[in-house]
Write a protein that binds this DNA or RNA. Structure first.
Length: 618
RNA sequence: GCGCCCUUAGCUCAACUGGAUAGAGCAGCCGCCUUCUAAGCGGCAGGUUGCAGGUUCGAUUCCUGCAGGGCGCGCCA
């Protein structure tokens, strides 16, 4: 979905106002001084505005496209701005010339060591080393909060994920969406949004009736009856035995020999309660706790559907009409009929949609629309839904309704997750609900651990298929990204363990490290690490804006790689070791750096919901 | 038939929302352990970013068309 946003159809009206620079002439500022790139973007814009004042540039230039970024090639410098290229045309200037002028002005900034024009008009510049050293100090001061952004401005966001029907335990098919939703929630919180984690369960459809009937059967079994095989159409899983037994324990023989009409509703309520409790327990195993649980029955029984219908009617968006038959698809039983239609085509839908079936009862999408109306009423500007890819056109159906019911004020985004292929020793595990052959979340967590499960689920973009191979997930090698990142973190701590042996009486607290002489960090390897870490706040913002938590995984892999590389440099070149007994000052500067690396890795893992490991031994 | 998604190295995937010479890992080849964890690192090789156009200073990224793969499709749940 994020890609769909990127490609554009809804891009303009689907961005929260303020992010697109609508209010000012500066692109989008996090307002966060921790982000060194944001700081220099401001510097560049300030310089440009001075040039406007001095008459060197015309007034009224659009500076929203001026960016300051790390260049792809580190050799190009520390930072690069596209200002000259972007402004050349509107200013009626040659980009290289404009770049030259900008270069001269940037050079006069104290913290800028060097600046030059390159390529089609990029202005590259380098910062003095002390400026980079300040990044390490920022990280140490902020701790896990390093990378937090004010971008979200406390805007309320609702993330709905998992939302599995309460008819069985959490299994492999649920986990990906669960983890992605949960990490997205943490990511958006880090980016300054006010996030609610929500679970919506369907307790009003036919599936929960099936659950109730299955429960009743298992209940009879629990009371000693021979029920034989589970009939077609009921849930065959063994887990239902427990539900039957729990009911027998609570109600005794109360429901034996009664009509379904008498027991269906109460047993349904009981079974749903049991299943939801189980689901919550399962989710807790991978650290997922929703703040809000909403259910369809309350929406339906609370009259929300009628309310939505009235609202849409009052807006003159409801009419009686006949839809043309679906194009191209064979429909033998097609008969045109006058239906109650919602003018969704006014909101970008391909055609209007029926809200009532021809028999006058509500159409399937109505409860979902009503549920979103409920979210809008609760004040959410952003509603994000994490769904399986098979829910293909959910967004097409829901977006017009959300748009209409919120007066355009609320936006909905859906993240579609592709399947997870589970492998054991390289062999795909087939699972079918029918035979009850499923891999449960509990099983996965018990076998490989919660952290590894979460990390793997975040190791690819959501819409690409993912292979989850039990053997690979627990493999202790660099080929396993979980291990690789954790190992880097553990190595950081290992350095401190060694430092304590080297200087048993020294103080290694953050306060002490803050006093280290950061000017000593001047090797290319050290600065590479610092630059990478300086980019963490940018990555947080970019990932949050794109609703793509997996980017955190890639970032951590890069950071871990740079750290492992530096570590190994110390093997070839003794002057690059972290701990040098006769140079305590340098060692402490490097310890500050190492502490910063551990802090950023931990900060990223926190977004992913993975516990950092401090020690690993074979 | 219509809609959405995907197509990047032999394989699995990136590319910071339009930037400079498209990057990692695996597989292959060559190196590095009397030294902070070699559970690691360095190097070599590997590409017409599915094809054809377009937009502009500049396209893997945006637009159009085509080809191939996946998913979804009505007033069902």
């Amino acid at each position: 979905m994020a890609r769909a946003l990127r490609r554009g159809l809804y891009r303009q009206h689907d961005r929260p106002s303020g992010h697109s620079g609508a209010q000012g002439n500066v692109r989008r500022l996090s307002g966060d001084p921790m982000n060194i790139f944001t700081r220099y973007q401001r510097e560049v814009c300030r310089v440009l505005e001075d040039m406007v004042k001095a008459g060197e540039l015309p007034a009224g230039l659009d500076m929203t496209r001026v960016k300051v970024e790390p260049p792809r090639e580190a050799a190009h410098g520390d930072m690069a701005t596209n200002a000259a290229m972007v402004l050349a045309k509107p200013a009626g200037k040659n980009p290289r010339q404009l770049g030259e002028t900008l270069t001269q002005k940037l050079k006069s900034i104290q913290s800028v060591a060097e600046a030059s024009v390159a390529g089609p008009g990029f202005v590259n510049f380098r910062l003095v080393n002390t400026e980079w050293a300040s990044v390490v100090l920022d990280i140490l001061k902020c701790g896990a909060a390093y990378g937090d952004s004010a971008m979200g401005a406390h805007e309320k966001v609702n993330i709905e994920y998992v939302s599995a029907n309460p008819t069985g335990p959490m299994h492999a098919g649920h986990i990906r969406g669960a983890v992605i939703g949960d990490a997205l929630a943490a990511l958006l919180e880090k980016a300054g949004y006010d996030v609610t984690r929500e679970y919506y369960f369907n307790d009003a459809g036919t599936q929960v009736d099936v659950l109730a009937r299955t429960t009743h059967l298992r209940y009879r079994e629990a009371l000693g009856e021979d029920i034989g095989a589970i009939p077609e159409g009921l849930y065959p899983g063994e887990y239902m035995k427990d539900v039957g037994q729990a009911l027998a324990a609570r109600d005794g023989k109360k429901w034996l020999g009664k009509d379904e009409g008498e027991w269906l509703a109460p047993i349904r309520e009981f079974a749903v309660g049991v299943m939801m409790a189980e689901i919550r327990k399962d989710l807790a195993l991978i650290g997922i706790t929703h703040e809000t649980f909403s259910n369809e029955r309350e929406i339906v029984e609370g009259g929300t559907l009628e309310k939505v219908f009235k609202t849409l009617t009052d807006m003159d968006l409801i009419y009686q009409g006949t839809l043309p038959p679906p194009k191209g698809k064979e429909m033998e039983d097609w008969e045109p009929a006058e239906l109650t239609l919602f003018r969704s085509s006014r909101f970008g839908d391909s055609s209007d949609r029926p809200l009532k079936k021809r028999d006058g009862t509500w159409a399937y999408i109505m409860p979902d629309i009503a549920y979103h109306y409920d979210k809008i009423r609760r004040g959410y500007k952003w509603m994000i839904n994490v769904l399986g890819k098979d829910h293909g056109n959910y967004l097409d159906k829901m977006r017009p309704a959300v748009s209409a019911l919120s007066g355009g004020g609320a936006k909905i985004d859906v993240i579609f997750c592709a399947m997870v292929k589970v492998l054991k020793n390289g062999v795909p595990v087939k699972f079918s609900k029918r035979s009850g052959n499923i891999i449960t979340l509990r099983e996965m967590v018990e076998e490989v651990g919660a952290g590894a499960v979460r990390f793997f689920m975040l190791s690819r973009t959501p819409d690409s298929e993912l292979e989850f191979d039990f053997a690979k997930v627990v493999e202790q090698s660099k080929d396993n990204p979980v291990f690789y990142v954790q190992y880097a973190h553990a190595r950081c701590h290992s350095v401190f363990r060694n430092a304590k042996e080297m200087w048993p009486d020294a103080d290694f607290s953050v306060e002490a490290l803050l006093k280290a002489d950061m000017k000593r960090l001047d090797s290319e390897e050290e600065l590479k690490l610092v630059r990478l870490m300086a980019g963490w706040p940018r990555h947080v913002e970019a990932a949050a804006e794109a609703h793509e938590p997996h980017r955190v995984t890639f970032y951590l892999h890069d950071l871990a790689a740079a750290f492992h590389a530096f570590w190994n440099k110390g093997r070839d070149d003794a002057t690059l070791r972290f701990l040098i007994e006769k140079d305590k000052d340098l060692s402490f500067a490097r310890l500050a750096l190492v502490k910063a690396v551990a802090t950023v890795i931990a900060s990223g893992l926190a977004v992913m919901g993975v516990e950092p490991v401090e020690e690993m031994h074979g």
